[in-house]
């Protein structure tokens, strides 16, 4: 008799536990979602969910820039900057585009909304990591 039947576990959980490898379809959805917020869900056919994520995350990123938030760049003398770069880089092409266009880089910290904008940029990037993981789960069929 199957161990999972003896212990009363659900077949779905047992199937997930044995399937330890990464699914190529899921990895593609994850990477696409990281590059552009919501795109991973759209790729998996969840158009409304993807559109909502895109509107909210791109809107949040734009709001962060409009509030004079500063995008983190690597500073070798300040190792903490790596964490902030990791957070901001979660926005994918939005972060890369702003770096190339030099938007949100030379921002004066004296602006009253600087902290709000910078925090929003970090959080949007981190939320997009979560959204990309969700896109992976949707692509491999773990979530509806």
């Amino acid at each position: 008799m199957d161990v999972q039947q003896e212990t009363g576990g659900s077949p779905h959980v047992a199937e997930s536990a044995t399937d330890a490898g990464l699914s190529p379809k899921g990895v593609v959805a994850f990477v696409v979602a990281l590059l552009f917020p919501g795109a991973g869900h759209v790729l998996s056919g969840r158009f409304r969910r993807g559109a909502l994520l895109a509107v909210v995350l791109v809107g949040g990123f734009t709001l962060g820039i409009l509030l004079h938030g500063r995008l983190a760049t690597i500073d070798l003398e300040n190792r903490l900057s790596f964490f902030f770069v990791f957070a901001d880089a979660g926005s994918g092409l939005l972060y890369l585009g702003c770096l190339l266009a030099h938007v949100g880089i030379d921002v004066a910290a004296k602006n009253p909304t600087y902290e709000y904008g910078t925090s929003l940029l970090h959080v949007v990037g981190l939320l997009n990591y979560l959204a990309a993981l969700d896109a992976y789960d949707v692509a491999v069929g773990r979530k509806p």
Binding site: L57, L120, V124, L127, A131
Partner: peptide, 16 residues
């Protein structure tokens, strides 16, 4: 700004 921040986070948390 706090409300907008909360709206962004709440929407994404609800979606995922």
């Amino acid at each position: 700004v706090m409300a907008l921040f909360a709206a962004v986070v709440a929407t994404v948390m609800a979606v995922i």
